[in-house]
């Protein structure tokens, strides 16, 4: 009946001091819970909505429609020969994923306060599962992209195989920001007001409706470098490159800057999260 062996390792709980390391082994042990929580988020996302999963289709479609109207029809945007709708969609898809993931994950810890105060598990899986649950919507919108490409008769290039890499960066960026914001949200509920503002501004501070090369041309390399610190600049540029080919090859230094900024945000976020994690249950 008793599964305890004499070798059962002893665990010691005592006050932590200094920098708290990230316990990857423990995260791995809790991988099932992580998947279960994402699964829950996916199940409940469109519960009791009349349109259900159709929302995942409508959101990018309506957004693209507005972008086409404003930039292409009214603004006569030069989209380097590619159909503007596809170009916009290639920007909107990762942006939408990022914005949704940010919204969900930044609020995730506070929304799970019931669990946080009653059960122990590595708290990092909460914002992570919130980000992962957005992947379903992302896949739906990628299918819309495929249909749109067929509609405009665009070729499916080999470079599309590079998409997963940029998806991974988008995921990391959303997770990094989500980790920071969800931990901050436990202490400072200001985050709730900052995030919507952030995502509304971000759509203009990222090359969603336009091309990032415009920034380089208009404002010069200094501003462009700062601009590229926004992780989504690299992701969106990468998306367009994969989908529309070499005419849309991004500035490689900019791409590197985005990647490095994402990594920095991720590492600092995880450490900040770990160092505040122990007081979540007391403060939340």
């Amino acid at each position: 009946m008793n599964s305890r062996t004499p070798q059962t390792p002893e665990r010691v709980i005592r006050p932590a001091r200094g920098l708290v390391p990230i316990d990857f082994a423990e995260l791995w042990r809790y991988r099932e819970l992580f998947l279960f929580l994402s699964w829950r988020d996916i199940l409940i996302r469109y519960k009791q909505t009349a349109l259900g999963i159709a929302w995942a289709v409508l959101q990018p479609l309506l957004n693209t429609f507005v972008f086409v109207l404003v930039f292409d029809k009214l603004g006569n945007f030069d989209s380097k020969g590619a159909p503007y709708a596809v170009m916009a969609l290639a920007g909107l898809i990762p942006w939408q994923f990022f914005a949704n993931a940010l919204g969900e994950s930044s609020n995730s810890l506070v929304a799970s306060s019931n669990m946080v105060t009653k059960i122990y598990f590595p708290r990092l899986i909460i914002p992570a599962s919130a980000v992962l649950s957005g992947v379903v919507d992302l896949l739906v919108s990628l299918m819309i992209l495929a249909v749109t490409m067929l509609w405009f008769g665009l070729p499916f290039r080999w470079s599309l195989l590079g998409l997963p890499l940029f998806l991974l960066i988008a995921f990391s960026a959303a997770f990094a920001a989500g980790v920071w914001l969800s931990a901050l949200n436990v202490n400072y509920r200001d985050v709730k007001y900052v995030v919507p503002f952030f995502t509304r501004m971000g759509i203009y501070l990222s090359p969603v409706g336009y091309l990032s090369t415009l920034i380089l041309d208009k404002f010069g390399p200094g501003v462009h470098f700062l601009y590229c610190l926004n992780p989504m600049v690299g992701v969106i540029d990468g998306f367009r490159w994969c989908i529309l080919g070499d005419a849309f090859q991004p500035n490689l230094q900019g791409l590197a800057a985005s990647g490095i900024a994402t990594m920095l945000l991720l590492v600092t976020g995880m450490f900040y999260f770990r160092s505040t994690e122990k007081t979540f249950a007391d403060v939340i």
Partner: peptide, 24 residues
């Protein structure tokens, strides 16, 4: 769920807590 301010706890084995039913 929360960290002690002082002292220590030594545990040998898997621990599960039911501070409430129906958590989550």
């Amino acid at each position: 769920i929360t960290e002690p301010t002082e002292g220590e706890i030594r545990i040998r084995g898997r621990i599960a807590s039911l501070l409430e039913v129906g958590t989550g």
